[in-house]
Design a protein around this nucleic acid. Structure first.
Lengths: 235, 235
DNA sequence: CCGCATGATGATGTATACATCCTTCCGCTC
DNA sequence: GAGCGGAAGGATGTATACATCATCATGCGG
């Protein structure tokens, strides 16, 4: 038996994927807030790589609209105005309905348990609200939703649009005085969405999941728009 | 007046975009057929650049699913099986309907003239069928369709899905004995689509454009599937 | 004191040398 | 002659030096 060649940091593509997901998470959790300037050299040092693979990852994040590289200045985390955000949300609303219509996949027992785990997570958040934990749980829920369709392009595109919008709520809410109350309210709304989806899944009514999600995404954006108005009136 | 600094090959980003569009066109016109192996060094020589900017472009094409880089082998043009193609088409059908519903933009006189020009192009193709010219005209029509919505994400995503599917018809048809007849039929179908869309636009009925496109895309895929069955039965 | 030119600094963009991996071909062994 | 092993060639992946650009501090001139 020959020993496999030593690989210190994962075999290339997987390593790039790890860096990509790490940076995307930091952007979405506002560890890198909009306007933040990343330096390729710093990232290279952190991930024990050269600038080349880092640039490969940053290029992808730029193509996805999360970053913007400016020659001589730096790589800057993008900000989204409310108009552009509205466009993305309109699309997300329309796509949500496609889950359940395009190649729906009924979750098995373990899948349902994962949804129930998210619901438990909601209860924990109601007890002790925390913005970062909320954002993380929201992402986990989205990942579960993605398993409900076998249509790969739909999954990809939904994911892309989701990550373009998810960080905006955190950013908007952070600027408001009533931050604590808003967070609690938003967690309550989210819990209701999870409960509704879970009920539909337990009833085996996948088509309804699309309608439920559509309604919740639309209402979520309506609240976001109202909060943005309050945070920066007349902007 | 100071003279502007000399730029020999366009200022960076624009140059990359040109290379990107060139390669994408070659892939979609089957100048680079599925399975074709590209070599970064060759492309670098052709575009008078180093491998670095070429790799930036290839990375984007890989993220969009048109290429696949394999370490030590080459950068290969992807092929799509009929199942994956069906998923993309299902999504395209659904998205087509969103034109006219999401931020519809009525074309002005010049815009309508461009649609009429495509219709004239169809007539020319009916007289003298040509697969490449057909593919090009199809792309031009798609670009015009994209102007009918102001929703930027919708445009982006539709474009991405379009370029993932458009080359497959050429590839499938080329393997069939009845190639000439199929081409003529497909041109006739396309002409009808253009005429229907133009009629709806002249009537100012943008919502109908979505329905028309939806129907035509669905039928187009049905024909494609039937042809694929005939070209490779039991595959 | 204000304003503009200018150089220092540090960032991304590019070119290139090197590392790693896969394929292929040649030659040896059975 | 068939099959296997290994070296050579060539491709992508990575690291690094250099070019270009934007910013900011500095100093000179008004």
């Amino acid at each position: 038996m020959t020993s496999a060649p030593q690989r210190r940091r994962g075999d290339g593509r997987q390593r790039l994927l790890r860096i990509y997901e790490t940076l995307r998470l930091r952007i979405c959790l506002l560890d890198y807030p909009p306007g933040h300037r990343l330096r390729e050299a710093d990232l290279a040092a952190e991930f024990a790589a050269s600038r080349t693979p880092i640039r490969r990852v940053l290029a992808r994040l730029e193509d996805e609209g999360l970053l913007r590289s400016v020659h001589g200045v730096g790589t800057i985390v993008t900000d989204i105005d409310i108009a552009a955000l509205a466009e993305v949300y309109e699309l997300r609303v329309a796509l949500a309905e496609l889950y359940g219509r395009l190649a729906p996949v009924a979750p098995d027992g373990a899948g349902l348990d994962r949804f129930r785990a998210v619901l438990s997570g909601c209860d924990a958040l109601v007890e002790r609200p925390d913005a970062r934990a909320f954002a993380r749980l929201n992402m986990e829920f989205f990942a579960l939703i993605a398993t409900l369709t076998a249509n790969a392009p739909l999954r990809q595109i939904s994911e892309r649009l989701y990550y373009q919008t998810t960080r905006i709520w955190l950013k908007t809410a952070a600027r408001l005085a009533a931050y604590e109350r808003l967070l609690a309210e938003e967690i309550a709304h989210f819990r209701r969405e999870v409960a509704d989806v879970l009920a539909a899944l337990e009833a085996g009514d996948l088509a309804n999941v699309g309608a439920i999600r559509r309604a919740h995404i639309a209402m979520s954006f309506a609240r976001l728009r109202a909060q943005a108005e309050r945070a920066a009136p007349g902007e």
